[in-house]
Each structure stands twice: as C-alpha cells, then as structure tokens.
Design a protein around this nucleic acid. Structure first.
Lengths: 247, 247
DNA sequence: AAGTGGTCTAGACCACGGC
DNA sequence: CCGTGGTCTAGACCACTTT
C-alpha cells in the first residue's frame, strides 16, 4: 500500500510524487468547505491512516501547505486552517509601509458602490464570461486620519450574490469573502506603475493634480488560482513606500 | 553521535535543530570561499559522513539552502553552488516587465563613475563606518534601444578595492562582484515610490520634466545579510510595470 | 499522562545522468 | 553499470499543550 503506483495511476509523462497527491486531496477538502478557516484538522497520524500513506508523507504535504499560508501548525495542539485574520493579511497582502514606523491596517471610507457592465480590462483580468456583470466599490483609505490611497475594487457579481444587500462594508474584505461566500484568497499578483494624479483623485486625496502617485493593480486569486477580485489603488507615496523582499 | 546535544552545546533558551546547525556549517564553507559558484558540492552521503549526521539531516539543510537560491540540485548529478547567471538574476532580482511581452535583461550605458564622500542616506543603508568612502556608478538602462531607467549605484569602497581600475563595467554587476571580489548577493530589499522626474533625469531619459517616475531603492545584501550595494533607480513606467507575487 | 507536531535516523526503492 | 538526488516508510525520541 506504500507504492505510489498503487494509490493513483501514473499515465504517460505525468508522474506525481505521493506527497503532491496527498496535498491535492487535502486541498480538495479545503476548497469544498469541509474544513473552514480556524478549524482543527485531523492529526497527522489520523490523516496518514485515512489516506493509507506514512505519517512522513502527510507531513511533507502539510509542510508545503504551511509554506503557502494555507494551514498553521502548532506544536502540541494540532494543525489549523489559516484564517484571514488582520495581522496575517497585513503581513501577507499589504506591502505599504510608512517611511518611519511600522505598517498598520488603514481605515476605509466607502465613496460609492454599485453594479456595472465590466470594462475590457476587468473582463480580461477576472476572466469573465460573456455578459457577466460586476460589482464595484470605491473607497478611500487613511493612515492616522490622513488619506493615503483611493482604491477601486471590482468583483464578479456571479461569485458574490447579494453583495448589494450588505448594510456595511467592513475594512477587512478578505475576511468577509471567506465568511459570507466561503471564498478564500490564497494569492495575489500586483503590478506597480507611477502615474500622475487625475483631478478627481487629487480632489479625493487632497493632493495636487498631476502629482506622482503609485498605481497598484492587484488580481487576487482563490485557492484554485481563479481570479476573484481586481483592485486598482492610487497611492500618495510622499511618506509611504511599497516594500518588497527579494531572495 | 546522532544526539543533537552531542554535536553542539545547547545553552539556556537557544536550542537549534541539528539541520539548522548543519546549514550554518555549510554556509560557513560557502562564505569562506571554499565552495565557489558553479562548484560541485560533496554528495549528501559524503557530507553526512563528514558532519556525523544522517543523510536525511543533510538533505533538510540542503533543501532549505535550495529554497534560498544558494545551491542548485540536479538529480543524478549532484548539488552545485548557485551562480549569478543572467537568467537567474533576471528572475530573482529584476521585477520590471514590459506590459506586453516577457522580461529581458536591459542593456546599460555608464554615464559617470567615481569615488565620493557618502551621503547620510548611504551611510545608513550601507552601515558605513566613520570616514569610509564610497564608489558611485550612474548608468542608463535600455530595453530595445529605448531608455527606460537611470540608476545610481553606491558601493562601499572598502569592500570593492580597485573598483576604479576596471576598464569596462559589465552589464551583470552581481556576477562581477562574485568573480572579482568573491561577494555573493543573496537577498535584497526594495522600496518603491512615485516621484516627479527632475530636469536632469528627464533629459537623460528623454521624458518630460515632472512626469511620474517609479523610484526603486534597493539594498542588496551578501550571504551574511550585510548590506553591500545601494541602488536608486528612476524608471519610466509608461509601458513597463513592476511585478510582485504575493502568497 | 496522553496526544500533538518537530526532529533525527536508517533503510529501501526510484529516476536521472554519465560511464 | 554506478553514483547521484528524490521519494517513501517505520520507528524512535523530544518539546509542547491540554487533560
């Protein structure tokens, strides 16, 4: 029962190590909603028994999921599904940092919301089907009461039914996606450019028209790597920078 | 001999797993220059014998070094010290990508070079000692013959003796650092802002004064995490973006 | 004391590359 | 063919957390 060839057929060129197959089977249970954020997973030994592999193989699968921030392991307690908790989101998905001092979660003020027909860019980035509608949110975010950025968030209406029924839009959207629609954001791709502030953005941000702004466009993806959210942020980078670690 | 406590003293709170100790011992041999880029390391079994640990422990140490791009493992051949080769550098340290098309290594044209007294910023970022001199390079980089960025590179003169004796300054500086001074760049921290083009930069880049530019400031570090190079790049981001993957 | 993840070992077989 | 790294297993002990 320990032979890789026993548990799954290896046809043609497509060999996959057993631990990768185990990871996929665990991922399926995550995606299906069987294991919700915050929940305790079965122990390594129990999972090994269920999947008919050794504890070491389960461990290697769980280690790779830990590296991707999908689960959190605590010695003596067990393995938990990662939660979209503020401090983690801040660390993982928010790269803006004050030039002096530590990063913190910025407050938000919603400017507008509503359904719309998607633009060409939105259709491409969110891989929308023909005729699919989107929901847009525009909001201003501030650090210590200073507006620092204005962002336009676009969601495929089909994956977020009744978004417009929300009475309030919380600061931490990724937690909302998870709790209300069971959608977990697992990764994101960001692209940065420098642009000149439009008169509209300048007015909202309280800066000069034509001032250089950092434009951050983000495509956030779920656990199956499907694009879920498109976000355009225009940011005053006078006292703030975008930080990246290269290794 | 397999007991962690045997091989190194674990005092007070400072426990370190055996594989981490092995990694440190291997790192020491890398840093010392015993193993130069491109060289073949001893096999896992041989290293295990030398260090009196199991092959699995050596493997865990080498795996973590692989994750940090310090060594490259090839099944059937062996484990090699990573080289500052163009395609790898491009992937690891160069995040600028054309909006349409793949990234490529930009050409360079040196504008000026010379020794100088460091600025306050340079002293801080490079952690220079009192009175230490720096060497500065200013160059323009182009993609398909279009100037896209101008960069100012600052090096501590003490770590790069006779830099001014160079007849030509190659495009791939990190390979030069490695071959000429045995300095390997292992990681870098980048900070991005949007700024308005100065008249000087505008002239050199062929853009309008006041146009929004992407400012990228990078501190590159050696294998011991000591800062080695400071680089300020001002980039025209009209048809180019800075790409980041968040996971 | 019992259960969990974390570390370490030893041995087996496989896939790959060069002889 | 042999030696390499890659995978998988089984079993031991450790450190941590809860009961």
């Amino acid at each position: 029962m320990a032979d890789p060839a026993d548990t799954e057929v290896n046809e043609e060129i497509g060999f996959k190590p057993l631990y990768a197959q185990v990871r996929e089977r665990l991922m399926r249970r995550l995606v299906s909603g069987e294991w919700m954020p915050g929940m305790l997973l079965p122990s390594e030994i129990e999972l090994a028994r269920q999947l008919s592999v050794s504890q070491g193989t389960v461990r290697k699968a769980l280690d790779s999921m830990t590296a991707d921030n999908l689960v959190i392991r605590r010695q003596g307690r067990g393995t938990y599904v990662a939660e979209p908790e503020e401090s983690r989101i801040l660390f993982q998905f928010f790269r803006l940092t004050p030039d002096n001092g530590a990063a913190s979660f910025p407050d938000s003020r919603v400017v507008s919301t509503g359904h719309a027909k998607p633009t060409h860019t939105e259709i491409e980035n969110l891989r929308l089907a023909e005729g699919e509608q989107v929901f847009r949110i525009e909001r201003i975010r501030m650090l210590s009461d200073q507006p620092i950025l204005i962002e336009t968030i676009t969601l495929p209406a089909s994956r977020f039914p009744d978004f417009d029924h929300l009475t309030i839009i919380p600061n931490n959207l990724y937690r909302l996606y998870s709790e209300r629609w069971g959608i977990t954001i697992g990764s994101a791709e960001e692209r940065l450019k420098a642009i000149a502030a439009s008169s509209r953005d300048a007015k909202r941000l309280g800066c000069n028209e034509g001032e250089a702004l950092l434009l951050i466009s983000r495509v956030a993806k779920d656990l199956e790597e499907r694009p879920v959210e498109l976000r355009w942020s225009r940011c005053i980078s006078r006292d703030i920078h975008y930080a990246v670690n290269l290794r």
